[in-house]
Design a protein around this nucleic acid. Sequence first.
DNA 1: AAACGATACTTAACATGTTAAATGTATCCG
DNA 2: CGGATACATTTAACATGTTAAGTATCGTTT
Lengths: 175, 175
Amino acid sequence: MAKKKSHDSSDDGAPAGRSVPMREFSRSLPMSLLRAREAVMRQFRPSLRQHGLTEQQWRILRALAAIEVIEVTELARTAFLLGPSLSRILRDLEARHLIERRTVKTDQRRSTVSISEKGLKLMAAVAPSSEAIYADITRRYGARKLAELQQMLGELENSLAGLRPQEETDATADE
Amino acid sequence: MAKKKSHDSSDDGAPAGRSVPMREFSRSLPMSLLRAREAVMRQFRPSLRQHGLTEQQWRILRALAAIEVIEVTELARTAFLLGPSLSRILRDLEARHLIERRTVKTDQRRSTVSISEKGLKLMAAVAPSSEAIYADITRRYGARKLAELQQMLGELENSLAGLRPQEETDATADE
DNA sequence: AAACGATACTTAACATGTTAAATGTATCCG
DNA sequence: CGGATACATTTAACATGTTAAGTATCGTTT
C-alpha cells in the first residue's frame, strides 16, 4: 500500500551517500536521549569512580537508602535494572559489605536487601559531591527548564507505556 | 494511585528509610533520561533483532548509509560510540559483509568504512518497520511536542558541553 | 501428597560500555 | 637520521545490558 517515494524530497537533510529513505540519524529521538544522558552522566562518573562505585551500584545504594528493606524484584523496578544485572551487582555489593541480604522466612524464594552501616557511610561520603554536581547542572540549564524537561520525559514514557513493542506478524493480540 | 506520605519536611519525598540527604532518586535527571530512552528503544529492539541487528549495529549502518565513506574516528563520533565498541562491531559487520573497509593510502594508521550492497539491502529491509515505529511514537506523543523535547535535549547537551567532568582536587583548570 | 504450573531469583552466553594499555604509523625536532 | 611524541586503532579487562535457561520454592489441583 501507498508507496510514497517522494524522490528528491522535502525535508531529508541527508547528504548524498547511498540513499535509503530515512530520517537523518543524528536527529532521531533515541540519539537525542542518548547524547543528553551521556552528557549528564559524564559529570558524575569520575566522582563515583573515585569511591569505587559504578553508576548502577550507586543507583542501588540510593534506592536502598530511601527505605528500610526491599525485595529484590521490587528493587529491580526501583533502580530500573534487569534481574541479571541486579543479581550480579548485589553479589558484589554484599561481598563488599555495603548491603545486607536475608531470605524471607515465609517464602524461601524471595530475599530482602537493605543498606549496611558501611554502605551508609559510603553514601554520606559521595552524596555531597554528587549533589554539588547536580546543583551545577541545574544552575546551568535552569531549574524551571529542568523541571519542564523531566515533565516531558515522563509524558513520553507514559505515551509509550501501553504500547507493546513491535513484533512482526504476531497475532497474539490478546493476552 | 500512590499514597503520598507528605512527611513534613521541605520537598524531599523520601519515605523514612535511613536518611542520607539526597534528592529522591526516581526524580533524578539521569533516571528520567534513562527511562525515557528505554521506553523508546523497547519499541525498536524486537524489529531490529528479527533482522539480526543490535541497536548499535543499526546506528552504524544508518550513519554509513548517509555518506560515501568515512574514517573510523569520525564514524565513532557520528554514531556516538566509543572506540573499543566500534572496533568490535566493525569487525563483526565486516565479517558479515555488511560493510567494506580499506586503509587510507596516505596514512596507514587510518582506515575508511563504507556500507556494502548487502548492507544497503538489509537497511532497505529494516527501514520501513523502523520508520513506521517512529511515526507511531511521533503520533502518540505529538510531533510538535517531540520537536520541542529534542530541542530541549540539545540545549541540555550544550549547557554541559564545556563543563569538564568533575575530578577530585584537580588543579589543571587552564589550558 | 504427587504432579503441574507459576514465581523469584540466578546462571549462562553474547554484545556493548568504560577505562587503560598495547600496536603500529606518522610527525616533529634536534 | 634518530629518538621522542603524538595519533589512529585495537586489545584487554571488567561491569552492565539483553535474552534465554536453569534452579529452587510455592500454590494449586486432583
